[in-house]
Nucleic acid binder design. Structure first.
Length: 219
DNA sequence: GACCAGGCACATC
DNA sequence: GATGTGCATGGT
C-alpha cells in the first residue's frame, strides 16, 4: 500500500490536544467536516485544554457545528476536559506519562470515548503502539476473508497485534494506509456487492477465521 | 432524495 | 447478547 500510495503523514494535527479533539469530532463524520470544526476552534483561540475547559458548552457546540452531532460532541469534549482536569490537572504530559494499559481503561471510562477513539488518542497523540480498528480496517480485512463480517473490535485488534510488532510509527502508517485504500477501493455494501473476494481465499474463509479470530465465521 | 463519513451510548427484547 | 435507533452536518 505504501508503495502505491506513499506515506500518509497522519495524524493531520498541529498539537497533541488538537489530535485528541479531532479524534472525537471525526466520530462517524468525514475528516473534512471535522477539520472545519477544528479550524473554527483555532480561530476562536480556544484549542487548548484551558481554553476548551473554560468555554461554555453551548458556545462550543456552535463552534463545532460543521462536524455534525454537535450537541453530543460538545458534551463528549467537555467530559474529556473534565477527566483531564480532575485526573491530570489539564496536563497532557502527565496523562501520557501514565501506563498505557491504565490510560486506555481510563479513557474508555469517559462517556463518549469508545475503543476506536481511545486507540486513536493513544497512537496519534501519545505515540503509543495501540492499533486503531475502524470501519475501513474491518471492511478490508473482512473482504479478504481474514475476519468474519461480525468480528468485534477486540477480535480485529488481536489479529493485528499478533501479526505486527508493536511499533507506533508502523501502526500509524498502516492504519492511515488502510483508510486511504478503503476510501478509494473498498466501498461499503451494498454498492460494492459485485466486488469479488479473492476466490482462492474464499475457500479458506472458515479456516482463516478460526486461525485469526478463534472461531468460524457466523455468516 | 439517498447514501455515506476515520462512533458511541442507550433502549429494548 | 444481539439488534435498532438517535445524534446532524456536508459531499457525492
Amino acid at each position: 500500500m505504501q508503495a502505491a500510495l506513499g506515506p500518509q503523514g497522519w495524524w493531520p494535527g498541529r498539537t497533541r490536544f488538537e489530535i485528541i479533539v479531532g479524534a472525537i469530532l471525526t466520530q462517524n463524520t468525514s475528516w473534512r467536516n471535522a477539520a472545519r470544526a477544528i479550524r473554527s476552534l483555532r480561530e476562536a483561540r480556544v484549542l487548548t485544554p484551558p481554553g476548551l475547559a473554560a468555554l461554555p458548552q453551548t458556545h462550543l457546540a456552535r463552534l463545532i457545528r460543521s462536524a455534525g452531532h454537535y450537541n453530543i460532541k460538545a458534551d463528549r469534549l467537555k467530559r474529556f476536559l473534565k477527566f483531564l482536569r480532575h485526573r491530570y490537572a489539564l496536563s497532557l504530559r502527565r496523562m501520557f506519562a501514565q501506563q498505557p494499559s491504565v490510560l486506555r481503561r481510563e479513557l474508555l471510562a469517559v462517556r463518549g470515548i469508545g475503543p476506536e477513539t481511545a486507540d486513536a488518542i493513544l497512537l496519534y497523540a501519545g505515540d503509543i503502539p495501540s492499533f486503531v480498528v475502524d470501519a475501513y480496517t474491518r471492511r478490508i480485512f473482512g473482504r479478504h476473508g481474514l475476519i468474519p463480517s461480525d468480528a468485534t473490535y477486540e477480535e480485529v485488534q488481536r489479529l493485528l497485534l499478533r501479526a505486527l510488532s508493536p511499533d507506533a510509527q508502523q501502526f500509524n502508517e498502516y492504519h492511515a494506509l488502510l483508510v486511504a485504500v478503503g476510501k478509494d477501493f473498498c466501498r461499503p455494501q451494498p454498492r460494492c456487492a459485485r466486488c469479488p473476494l479473492r476466490p482462492d481465499l474464499e475457500r479458506h474463509r472458515p479456516a482463516l477465521a478460526r486461525r485469526f479470530v478463534g472461531r468460524p465465521p457466523k455468516k
